[in-house]
Nucleic acid binder design. Sequence first.
DNA 1: CGTGTGGGTTACCGCTAGTAACACACACTT
DNA 2: AAGTGTGTGTTACTAGCGGTAACCCACACG
Lengths: 214, 214
Amino acid sequence: METTQHAGEPGAAERRRRELLEAADRVVLRDGPKASMNAIAAEAGITKPILYRHFGDKAGLYQALAVRHTDALLDSLRAALDAPAERRSRVEATLDTYLAAIEARPQVYRFLMHPAEDSQAAERGFDVGLHSAPLLRRLGEELAQVVGERVDLGPDGERLARIWGHGIVGMMHAAGDWWLGERPCDRAELVAGLTDLLWGRLATAGNRADGPGF
Amino acid sequence: METTQHAGEPGAAERRRRELLEAADRVVLRDGPKASMNAIAAEAGITKPILYRHFGDKAGLYQALAVRHTDALLDSLRAALDAPAERRSRVEATLDTYLAAIEARPQVYRFLMHPAEDSQAAERGFDVGLHSAPLLRRLGEELAQVVGERVDLGPDGERLARIWGHGIVGMMHAAGDWWLGERPCDRAELVAGLTDLLWGRLATAGNRADGPGF
DNA sequence: CGTGTGGGTTACCGCTAGTAACACACACTT
DNA sequence: AAGTGTGTGTTACTAGCGGTAACCCACACG
């Protein structure tokens, strides 16, 4: 309404698109990942077909929203991962950054973690169709790259780095999700526990005297 | 149809329920997690309201389906975890059992991993509402219990065990999901890589000579 | 004979994602 | 000046979903 609404300047479409994305953002933050296209259109002060003209379908809009937030999160994670400090401190800082982010804006987190809603999938090949959220895939690949190019893992190090990248990200995600739901301890304790795990304490810990052994 | 369809014997309702669950299972295996109630009812040779009488709502049916499969998977995982062998071998066996299961029946896996669809959630408290699949929560708690009662983790060991339980399960899940989608290596290699990670190889590996260091 | 009560159905509600068809305003061309 | 896009917007619709109200009918029991 308040913008010049005829054609003319070429940047108009992009600006409009950003406005729509911000409206969608507001609705998703309010209603969670089940926000409907109707609601988003209403929030933006327009009607559904416009949304579909800009984003194709719901998956397109959600993806456009997701990449914004994912990019932002990735930037801060990269910063933590690249800080000048010893390895363990950097891992701790990265875990803490991630957990702080999901703690600060759980609705965004929940939206980002939603699996990819097939989009036009409909049996590409035949089946499976990844379940994990795209965010997790990106984080895993990103971490794999950092590890692979910095840590000496011998031959086949690249492949091992990818395994580790996805594994570590999954560990961080699942532990974070559980922690966010139950709040069993404060953030620092969770970070310390996970880092201990990554640092091999499972291998070196002794059996309990009263247990059946492990 | 083939069963006595009037009332009478008291076990009839439970048998019917099992029949319905098996029909639902077939449909979910065929159509994935977006199988509709209509389709399930049709497969069972009846109509929707009967399904709703038995299971309340879709989440109820899905949960009933999920617990069956989850119980089965948990049993085999427990067996691997309890086998008489040294710790590392058992961890490897457990990882391998899980990965073999999701490899053998990816549709079941995909169904089980679907987040809990709120059910009657509707803002209990106000927000967040766990995102992870119930299966992952159960696996995490189960592993936490095993670790907590067998490994000596000092004071606060129980809490640390829960952190590790959920973290390890998340690692296994994310790595498995990625592996199932891309098949970058065979199962044994993935198992070995993850076990190396859990055994602290990240801490001891040196920096690459050509990299910026980590 | 009457009267539940359980298994079953049809027909609907309100909602969703997505689309077709139409209407207006501007700009550029002939 | 008249036409002809082209982009922006609308209304009104389809098909399908989860879920439910209302009704039906066969049997068992008093």
